[in-house]
Nucleic acid binder design. Sequence first.
DNA 1: CTGTTAGCGCTTTCAC
DNA 2: GTGAAAGCGCTAACAG
Lengths: 336, 336
Amino acid sequence: MRKKVTLKQLARELNLSISTVSKSLKNDPEISEKTIIRVHELADFYNYKPNPLAVSLKSNKTKTIGVVLPEILNHFFAKALYGIELEASKNGYKILTCITNESYQKEVEYIEMLNYSSVDGFILSLSQETQVLNEFKHLKELKKDNVPIVMFDRVTDEVDCDKIIVDDQYASKTAVEHLIREGCRKIAVITTISELSVAKLRLQGSKDAANIFDEVSLIELHVKDVTTVEEEVEDFLKNNTIDAVLGLDETAASITINMSHKLGYKIPEDISVIGFTDGLLSKHSYPKLTTVSQHAEDLGARAAQVLIHQLDNYTENYKTKTEVIKTSLILRDSSC
Amino acid sequence: MRKKVTLKQLARELNLSISTVSKSLKNDPEISEKTIIRVHELADFYNYKPNPLAVSLKSNKTKTIGVVLPEILNHFFAKALYGIELEASKNGYKILTCITNESYQKEVEYIEMLNYSSVDGFILSLSQETQVLNEFKHLKELKKDNVPIVMFDRVTDEVDCDKIIVDDQYASKTAVEHLIREGCRKIAVITTISELSVAKLRLQGSKDAANIFDEVSLIELHVKDVTTVEEEVEDFLKNNTIDAVLGLDETAASITINMSHKLGYKIPEDISVIGFTDGLLSKHSYPKLTTVSQHAEDLGARAAQVLIHQLDNYTENYKTKTEVIKTSLILRDSSC
DNA sequence: CTGTTAGCGCTTTCAC
DNA sequence: GTGAAAGCGCTAACAG
């Protein structure tokens, strides 16, 4: 099958011992200049690379990161994954990726599997079900094993580990303030992800902004059933006089735009729309959606950075930290 | 750090030799019933799992598949990845994922890296640059090493390996036939991915259909520069009288819809639109896009299946095959 | 039935 | 300067 050169073969061919070859390859000062050169030459000739399995077995490190994501069809996580992957490979790490599909059970299984596959550490974003169940045994288990974890976006206070999050609350406050500044007074908040921690923060942020102004009112629409989002949003828009919508997720915002078209409302003339997360839909809606960008790629990259730093610089009692990535409001055509 | 039970420890605690424990765990008939039970009990108690690194080092198999994708922000590949991941984990395989970002150089590097990380086989879809350069040394190298490869969607005849593709040509023929049947006569084909093999097939399919009918004419718009797609499409729609558009990629179709809005053309009354690939945008456009579904998830899953089958049933001279996944036309509101 | 031994490929300590 | 030997955790051929 695959024939890779081993130290043994190099040693035989050079009439040296395995250990001498090994040391030469590491430019050990113990070894004579001459030998080092000879060894390197042959190694280069055969394009020798140490077998990572053997190295891992020895060193108990695999240079592999387990990445556990709730979804991959969600643009936000796809972008985050891309950021993680870039940063990882830049630092010589590989990533083993698993997708829980928002299931607690799968999250548990995958983490166990990856842990047993000897990943050096984890980057993960909690599945929806895990957040609802509020069950974190599997992660505490990891901590007990001393496996580094970095959580991003969907996090929990229950587990003591590094976290990279977005200032969701502040971001939505900013977004609503923007709407108010532009003259909107009756603002709707629409969400299809009420159960997620991030949605709660975003909702709170909206209230923070609205509460400052007496003349501003906030109406909420919580869509629970994905299959009827469109009808619900349509009815909502028909039955409420509003001049702005903040979508707490991209779907909510996108559907708001579409239903407005259907009902003949003009955007942004009749209704201003701002959406959370700066994904594909925002750029492909008409008019283009003003969004709160989460910088998903940076977020993923930063998570990877933090984890890798921890892996490469092991310290006995590491103190955990939470980092907040700043969002930004990307102004496009759907708001005035 | 991580304390995992080893055979050695079990052996010590049971007063047995390592090999006896090892055999017991495999229910070797050589070993007495009694011992087998004792061993299993202790192993269960400690939740023993063999160290995969050691097993891999011995067996020269890692139960890991290298997945190389051109993009991940493209919904099609995200879906394919999901299919691959599902199928892999169902069969006890892990996946190491890399994203080439359409770069030949990255494709080469990643494949080399994964190969050296001892993945058992590869699932890959060619980067755009690789297709343009028509350069496949890196893959032929793999074949020489006898590493199984399954290519999907973006494939090449230059490399002899299993391939899973979509019947692009037939699919677009069907799509255009549909448009013609519904009364369209002046049909535009718009693409932003002219260089890709799949685009060529899709274009050919459209011609196949159009050529059958004398009164049907086909106009092509090849957008080369992503930054000006919108203007180009807008101008094109303004300057040509057409009654249908086939978008050879989702972006093309989505932008056609948006520019039609802008120009005041009604869909599907004035222009029928059909788009390739059934991604996020299709469901979130208004009106919803009629699409050619590629069943990306199935495609990915099938690629994984084929590869895993090959890995689990090694045969000396394996004959390579190409499998075609059927597409389907998903009728939605943008065509009549 | 159970144990000894060698070896997968590498690193590292300790002799020479 | 160089090499022998042990060991990472496991499997498997071979002894007893």
